[in-house]
Amino acid sequence: MSILKLENISYHYDRSKVMVLDKLNMDFDEGKIYTIVGKSGAGKTTLLSVLSSLAAPTDGKIFLNDRDITKIDRYKFRSKYVGVIFQSFNLLTHLTALENVILSMDISGKKFNRPKKEIALELLRKVGLDEEEAKRRVLKLSGGQQQRVAIARALSYDPDIILADEPTGNLDGETQDEIIGIFRMLADEGKCVIIVTHSPDVAKASDITYELKKPDKAS
């Protein structure tokens, strides 16, 4: 059974009526890395927004463990079931790395069997940030470090699905490899990792790749 299933998903912006996504059907399973590739304007980021419930599809349905996600509160869906790693990280820059991670744990409303700080520090360590770096303000961290904080934040409430938008776009080769390594580790832990990317290296490292094409015409 697919953890996430797209059925005839279409999306167009309200004003332009230009079809961005046209009747997409996709299945995502646990324990695998998926990459979604395509040219600029093919609708990769839009698809990620739809998958993370930041945008509602114009048509079609998305199922989470066979449950229509329109039946789930959008905020609850984002805060509990999916972890989103944004292209521009979208961290709260005036907070420390640790505070960013703990905040998303707070928002999820989940109960944890250990202190949140302990879990957050462990997660940060897992993505390659030591305690000193964890307590540094995000603004004072490098792009690679910020990317790691974003990953740690996405993992903090233990979602089953990780969505990542160009997670290696701003990183050098070595860091990119490290990040891919982290994703592989997460997939091995049973998570469903969905990555939107331009990078052939990332696509190569994934288990399944979907290629998006620009819809031919406006609807």
């Binding site: 509990k80 989103v84 944004f86 979208n90 905040l103 998303s104 928002i107």
Partner: peptide, 12 residues
């Protein structure tokens, strides 16, 4: 921006 981030990560 703060509002955007907070709501994006699921805060109502």
């Amino acid at each position: 921006y703060e509002v955007g981030v907070l709501t994006a990560i699921g805060m109502k």
